[in-house]
């Protein structure tokens, strides 16, 4: 496995597009973390002298302000940080749970598989919005709840994909060879099944990050997610869309950030799949 990862890293380094995307993502992460030090304006401080002002490098507000006079650069960075955190945490949760669950169901098969897939169908039958509202009513509103509820929904599709991939390889001869060597079920799943299904799954995971960012902004719009004075890219774009004609920068700045972020994630995911696929070089 370590040799596999070393090889994958070497192949990733020789892919300029994926490297570029990786630096964009890392750059954004660094920028969102350093944002408060780079910018004298707080994300929730109001500047009554510059309400809805245009972006200008010579002024204090590089990317302009919104209609309450809040600095758009600071708010966009905060929004990017929140969106990235939600996207990454929820994707990681769905990846870990989904891979374990899906690989086990697909490999063990039979009645166990049947029961596990019925559970997934029941869970995916529950409407997400009701689920989130119930959680909000019971536990009150907070961001961790948002991570939890989005992750709880995301792993269902992931598990289905992993199970499908597992079914396609479980009758391959090298699995039979591992059984004949005396490997137990857990060992076969961890060392043979998961490494062989991880390629398509990683690509799907990088595609779930944008999906989850969208879902988060949707929930925030309904008042179930991120709330003022905090911001996410989704809420900023929703807000900016309302002012599109009068102050287009309010839409363009967070929209541009989201577009670059999603594009980088997709390109990076593609590069990652190529790097992990030892056979298709």
């Amino acid at each position: 496995m370590s040799a596999l990862l070393g090889d994958a890293a070497r192949r990733l380094r020789s892919n300029p597009a994926a490297l570029c995307a990786m630096f964009f993502i890392l750059g954004m992460v660094v920028l969102t973390l350093l944002g408060p030090w780079l910018n004298p304006n707080g994300s929730d401080s109001l500047d009554w002298l510059h309400v809805a002002s245009r972006p200008a490098l010579q002024s204090a507000h590089w990317f302009g302000t919104d209609r309450l006079g809040r600095d758009l650069f600071a708010r966009t960075l905060e929004g990017t940080r929140v969106s990235l955190a939600v996207g990454l945490v929820a994707s990681a949760v769905s990846l870990i749970v989904g891979i374990g669950y899906g690989a086990a169901a697909g490999y063990i098969g039979g009645r166990t598989d049947h029961a596990m897939m019925r559970i997934i169908e029941i869970l995916s039958g529950l409407p997400l919005i009701f689920f989130v509202i119930f959680l909000t009513v019971i536990f009150g509103r907070n961001e961790y709840l948002l991570f939890l509820s989005i992750g709880a929904v995301g792993w269902l599709t992931m598990a289905r994909i992993v199970r499908g991939q597992t079914l396609s390889i479980r009758h391959r001869e090298f699995i039979e060879a591992a059984v004949a060597s005396g490997a137990g079920t857990a060992r076969i799943i961890c060392r043979h099944v998961i490494p062989n299904v991880i390629g398509p799954v990683v690509v799907y995971a990088t595609l779930t990050v944008p999906q989850i960012i969208m879902l988060e902004s949707f929930l925030s719009f309904l008042g179930l997610g991120i709330q003022e004075p905090h911001a996410s890219l989704g809420t900023l774009i929703a807000e900016g869309a309302g002012e599109m004609e009068a102050a287009p920068w309010m839409l363009l700045v967070p929209g541009g950030f989201l577009a670059v972020l999603l594009l980088s994630l997709n390109v990076f995911g593609d590069g990652l799949r190529d790097a992990l696929d030892a056979e298709e070089r």
Binding site: L4, A177, A178, N196
Partner: peptide
Amino acid sequence: QIVFQDPLASLDPRMT
């Protein structure tokens, strides 16, 4: 132990 017919298919492509 067993040796299989298809040499390539019986080796895990992800393992050295």
